[in-house]
């Protein structure tokens, strides 16, 4: 069953045409979808619809099969703890003045999920599951490398045990060696805890390494979707073909 779903969702600014047009996609437990497209394809807008940060001008966002109503506080509370996100830039998404334990615990505080020893235990568990040492907890963000900071951001996202993780270019700013490690962390979370993953990326290579399914976007529309391997080996649209052909390959 689908945890998070877009049904014919469109989004337009008050003046001007739609930036996202009739997009449908569905994410179930343990699934992983790569949302691939170039700048202006509508990736960020779709992400903001899925996060409930903006409402579609037509169509629906369904959470656990229920239309997302931003005024329904009980529903939104459950939604916030179930759908979490990781951003591209681990440098700007972590408060430099807070220690890691406080940063990671933030969703527990703001959603009122856990306090005291219970919170401490959950934070330690989240930090361990992204492969960071326990002594990381008392340190500050600047003491970590880009890859480690992205792990910290992932720990913060999973501390409230969400069902869905939406990741916006989570490895784009990372060196190739670190990129693989962060992809491994995400893959392990998906396979071991059934976390549903949606990764937005302009980089087909990272999507290929993580996501079973791929949705190719262009100008706010889905131009192709299917198993990642099928799209890479036999893209059916001209646009997907040109995207695949443009991927730089090793000799």
């Amino acid at each position: 069953m689908s945890l998070l779903e877009l049904q014919g969702a469109s989004f337009a600014y008050r003046r001007g045409g739609p930036v996202v047009h009739d997009v449908s996609l569905s994410l179930g437990a343990g699934e992983s979808i790569g949302l691939v497209g170039e700048s202006g394809a509508g990736k960020s807008t779709i992400l903001s619809l899925l996060l409930g940060l903006s409402a579609p001008t037509s169509g629906e966002v369904l959470f656990d099969g229920i239309p997302l109503a931003r005024r329904d506080r009980t529903l939104m509370r459950r939604f916030r703890s179930s759908v979490q996100t990781v951003f591209q830039d681990p440098y700007s998404s972590l408060d430099p003045r807070q220690r890691i334990d406080r940063i990671v615990a933030e969703p527990l505080r703001s959603l009122g999920i856990a306090t005291g020893d219970d919170a401490l235990e959950r934070v330690a568990e989240a930090v361990a599951s992204v492969g960071l040492e326990r002594d990381a907890l008392r340190r500050f963000p600047h003491e970590f490398s880009g890859g480690q900071r992205q792990r910290i951001a992932i720990a913060r996202a999973i501390v409230c045990r969400p069902k869905v993780l939406l990741a916006d270019e989570p490895v784009s700013g990372l060196d190739v060696t670190t990129r693989i490690q962060v992809i491994d962390v995400l893959r392990r979370l998906r396979d071991e805890t059934g976390l549903a993953l949606l990764m937005v990326s302009h980089d087909f290579t990272s999507v290929a390494a993580l996501c079973e399914r791929t949705v190719v976007l262009k100008d706010g529309r889905v131009v192709e979707e299917g198993a990642t391997g099928s799209i890479l080996s036999s893209p059916t649209t001209d646009y997907a073909r040109s995207l695949v052909a443009a991927i730089p390959r090793l000799p």
């Binding site: 699934e31 190739v176 693989i180 290579t205 390494a209 990642t228 391997g229 890479l232």
Partner: peptide
């Protein structure tokens, strides 16, 4: 590392084992 990512482009899962896929041409 670069080879691992490059290989992923050739070995990404095809439709057979993905739920709801199966739209082979």
């Amino acid at each position: 590392s670069a080879r691992l990512l490059d290989d992923a482009l050739d070995s990404a899962p095809s439709s057979s084992n993905s739920p709801g896929g199966g739209d082979d041409a």
